[in-house]
Amino acid sequence: MKRISTIALVLLVAAGSLAQAEQNPIPRIAWYGNLTDGLAEAKRSGRPILLVSGAPSCLGVPGVW
């Protein structure tokens, strides 16, 4: 069975500065959902890229990686 971790593309940012919402205690990674925009932002900002891609379905069923 395929094992899918998570989606697309994220640019490295300072540790601890990611996604700690005041109203929601779950920290989240701010992913780019498409390659073109993620690559453009990496070039613009000079940040390296953590590239992770997965398919948004498991055994053909959506709603899970």
Binding site: K2, R3, S5, L39, A42, K43, P48, I49, L51, G54
Partner: peptide, 12 residues
């Protein structure tokens, strides 16, 4: 494959 990982420089 359906999952891919790599660290890349800002140039992609």
């Amino acid at each position: 494959p359906n999952t891919i990982f790599c660290m890349l420089g800002p140039d992609g």
